Structure formats: C-alpha cells, structure tokens
Amino acid sequence: MRMFQWAVVYCDDGRRGGQLAVWRCRLEPVAGGTAIRLRHGMRLGTAPGPLQNFMAQSPDCEGEILAGRFARLCTGVATTLADAQA
C-alpha cells in the first residue's frame, strides 16, 4: 500500500496558516490481479477560512452557501477519481 496526503492551509498574510482540509489518497493492490484500488478521503480542518468569512457576512444564506460548497466538493472529487481511472 502507498499513501500520500497534503494539507490545504489558509494564509491571508503570507505566513503559515491553519489547516482548512487534509486530503489523502491510498493506493492498494487488488488481490489476484494487476489492478490498483484508489481510496480517497478528505477531512475538514478547524482553521477559519474564506467559507466561514463568507457565511458570517451572509448568515441568512448559510445553508445555501454550505450546500453549494458541498456540491462543488463532490463534483471535484468525482472528477478527480474519474480522471485517475482513465
């Protein structure tokens, strides 16, 4: 098995910032063949970032903002995994 991961950090002043998310990919051989299984995951961090700032400016739209962000996240992950399979 091989694994790699990276963190997305928010830096608005040029210094190291807090983690917004940690992304991880694991590559595992599939038993009995030459195929590789890709497992992909993401964990949201605790650092405040642009999304929280935007929601604070429009608290009445928080649900819509989160739903839109989640939809874009799902689309991006699906696209990445489809491209990796091609």
Rank of each mutant, 00 (worst) to 15 (best):
Q5K: 10
T34Q: 14
T79F: 01
R72L: 07
P59V: 11
D83S: 08
L38G: 15
R24V: 07
L73G: 04
L27N: 02
L38H: 15
G76D: 10
A78F: 02
P29M: 00
E64T: 02
G76Y: 10
C11Y: 09
D13S: 09
R26Q: 05
E62M: 07
T75Y: 12
M1Q: 11
R37S: 05
T80N: 12
V8G: 07
T34C: 12
D83Y: 03
F54L: 14
D12V: 08
V30H: 08
G32A: 02
A86Y: 05
L51H: 13
A67M: 11
F4D: 06
Q5E: 13
G32C: 02
V9R: 08
D12C: 07
A78D: 12
M3F: 00
T79E: 08
W23T: 13
G33V: 00
A47F: 04
P29S: 02
C11Q: 15
Q57L: 15
A56V: 09
R2Y: 05
R43E: 12
E62V: 10
G68P: 02
G63K: 04
F70P: 06
R26L: 05
L20M: 10
L81F: 04
L20V: 13
G63D: 10
P50Q: 07
C61H: 03
R26P: 00
C25Y: 14
C25E: 13
R2D: 06
G14S: 03
R2S: 06
M55V: 15
P29F: 00
R2N: 05
G14P: 01
T75H: 13
V9G: 01
A21G: 12
R72Y: 01
G63C: 03
C74V: 04
W23G: 13
G17I: 07
G33Q: 01
A56T: 11
F54Y: 12
